[in-house]
Design a protein around this nucleic acid. Structure first.
Lengths: 146, 146
DNA sequence: CTATAAATGAAAACTCTTTTCTTTTGTAAC
DNA sequence: GTTACAAAAGAAAAGAGTTTTCATTTATAG
């Protein structure tokens, strides 16, 4: 099962959040993009869609979606944050195009071995890991090659 | 070979940077810590050592050290940046204690397989990766357990 | 339809970082 | 050692990015 606009709306309502046109617009933009988006980019997109919205509302909505685990943050982006709808609901990671910001998900992060070795070697009780790959997608390779 | 204060100083001088007491102090603090440190923490440490310094100078020094590849940024820290001297000069990653911020390095990140599979599956030309583990170190496990 | 708690938007505040500009200083050449 | 000067320091201001405040508007349950 993957998240749809409808599903996200439903989860938000369940948790007691009202579904305002502004929130719908933010969700729609995030759902409709393959790229990771900064708050500013979401802001511009919503306004390009001729909806009025304040940047404050973008931030507030992002924070809610993030708290509910419905969006993921991309860490290899520059300064500032950048978000993406959570597509696979299971544990996963991102492969990010440095050209166009497109993000591909992958779930088979085979870190169990490394994690076990590290844990044994250091005595650390490992709680989480951060793994991201950055590269250039086929489209951007072509563009750069010409 | 590992970086020493002397080595770092020598590299900086080679690159045309002057060795001021302030820079020495920042290098000494970073070198002397197993933990990742925020600019603010470095600032406090230097001042605790009874050296006068401005926060601006901390930022400028950090930026130089970072440009020269002499310090590493830790990404799993909270908001804001956090730095650590570069200990292994080869490609490596960090295991970070969420209790005391201690950082352990590891070099055998066996991601070549994952990287190859990803590259074949997606057509991306992979350029870099970000890998960090977060856990609790033995000392902090004991403290928490009592 | 109404009541109300929640959401919005604008402005202000806040945090983190960089820039500007004047004064000070490390370093190389004498 | 002195001297000369480009580079660095420090203070204050400016600049990003994000959150808070507060008065007004609105979604939704009854």
């Amino acid at each position: 099962m993957r998240l749809s606009e409808r599903k996200i709306s439903s989860i938000m309502r369940q948790r007691g959040y009202k579904l305002t046109p502004q929130r719908r617009a933010v969700i729609k933009i995030i759902m409709g993009s393959d790229n990771h988006l900064t708050p500013e980019a979401i802001y511009q997109s919503v306004r390009d869609g001729h909806q009025n919205i304040g940047l404050t509302t973008i931030y507030r909505t992002i924070n809610i979606l993030s708290d509910l685990g419905l969006i993921c943050e991309v860490h290899t982006a520059g300064s500032g944050r950048s978000y993406l709808v959570r597509r696979p609901l299971e544990h996963h990671h991102h492969l990010v195009c440095s050209g166009c910001n497109r993000v591909v998900d992958f779930s088979n992060c085979d870190l169990a071995d490394i994690e076990r070795k590290l844990s044994e070697g250091t005595g650390f009780k490992i709680e989480e890991h951060l793994l991201e790959f950055v590269g250039i997608c086929p489209d951007c390779q072509q563009t750069a090659g010409t």
